[in-house]
């Protein structure tokens, strides 16, 4: 039995150990580096120790942004209130709001892709343009967006529109095209009208795949959101990370990075489970 064998079946315990090994190794390596650097320089801020990270997390979660006016009676607040006034929570809410706007804008994109795939006139009207639009590097038009829409929310949302919606439109278009023509004909022979076929036959059966496509595009969506926040924003998770870079605030940056990863992971997981639960007939290809 060799490691490089296709037909081996590792047992449960081995699987568990192997799959967590790199996490454990990463943490150990980090702790070792931190400890070593602190031995050389007790004031090191680049690789904070666990204690420093803990303090950083506490500070980010429980204290308001240092630039903000401190609340008058911050001493008398409960822990929950302090958390809700804290920097982490406020940043998360700000980013989440933009994230949801972006997500909401993907639904018109899905409908456009569906109509392009089903109604030939729609298809020829939009396809060439969207194929071109898709090739525009969203970040390269960022200056134009800032000039055209100002540096407030709109330009950040537009960045997401330019960056992610063409992919979703084209994905939905292709999914629509991949529905066997038999299904469409079948719909008509059962008395369905065009819109019934579009929504109740085609959209219904590609919907789980569309959700999957949206799920896979959450990362680009976050990427554009973060780019927008880092360059022009006064709140949000990415704004904070960019800001703390100036103070070398690694003890807060690292928790923020992990927090964002955790949130995205949870959103992804929820969507995957929901998809499975809502569409028991769906078999992933």
């Amino acid at each position: 039995m060799s490691v490089l064998s296709i037909s081996v079946r590792p047992n449960r315990m081995t699987c568990w150990v192997l799959s967590w090994f790199l996490f454990a190794a990463g943490i150990c390596l980090y702790l070792y580096t931190a400890q070593k650097r602190h031995k050389e320089n007790p004031d090191d801020r680049v690789v904070p120790t666990l204690a420093q990270l803990g303090a950083g997390i506490y500070q980010a979660a429980m204290n308001p942004d240092a630039d903000e006016e401190p609340a008058a009676d911050s001493a008398g607040q409960s822990a929950l209130e302090r958390f809700r006034n804290g920097m982490l929570w406020k940043d998360t809410v700000a980013s989440a709001r933009r994230f949801l706007y972006g997500l909401a804008l993907l639904f018109p994109a899905v409908l456009l892709g569906l109509h392009m795939g089903i109604f030939p006139y729609f298809g020829v009207f939009f396809l060439r343009f969207i194929l071109f639009f898709d090739k525009i590097i969203a970040l390269s038009v960022l200056p134009i967006l800032f000039i055209a829409f100002g540096i407030d929310e709109l330009s950040k949302v537009m960045l997401i529109v330019i960056g992610v919606t063409p992919t979703i439109i084209l994905d939905t278009f292709n999914l629509t095209k991949s529905v066997p023509p038999e299904q469409v004909v079948k719909g008509f022979t059962l008395g369905a009208r065009d819109f019934d076929v579009a929504y109740r036959v085609v959209l219904k059966q590609i919907w789980p795949r569309v959700l999957n496509s949206i799920r896979l595009n959450l990362k680009p969506l976050m990427l554009f959101l973060f780019a927008g926040e880092m360059i022009a924003s006064t709140d949000g998770l990415a704004y904070r990370i960019a800001l703390l870079r100036r103070h070398m605030g690694m003890n807060i940056i690292i928790p923020y990075v992990l927090w964002v990863a955790l949130l995205l992971f949870l959103v992804d997981l929820t969507m995957r489970l929901l998809n499975k639960r809502l569409h028991p007939w769906f078999r992933e290809a």
Binding site: T189, K204, Q205, W281
Partner: peptide
Amino acid sequence: PDRDRGYVPQKYSLFPDK
């Protein structure tokens, strides 16, 4: 195609989501 002429193809004869 309309409701006067029923259709039973070899493949994809049912809606998989229903």
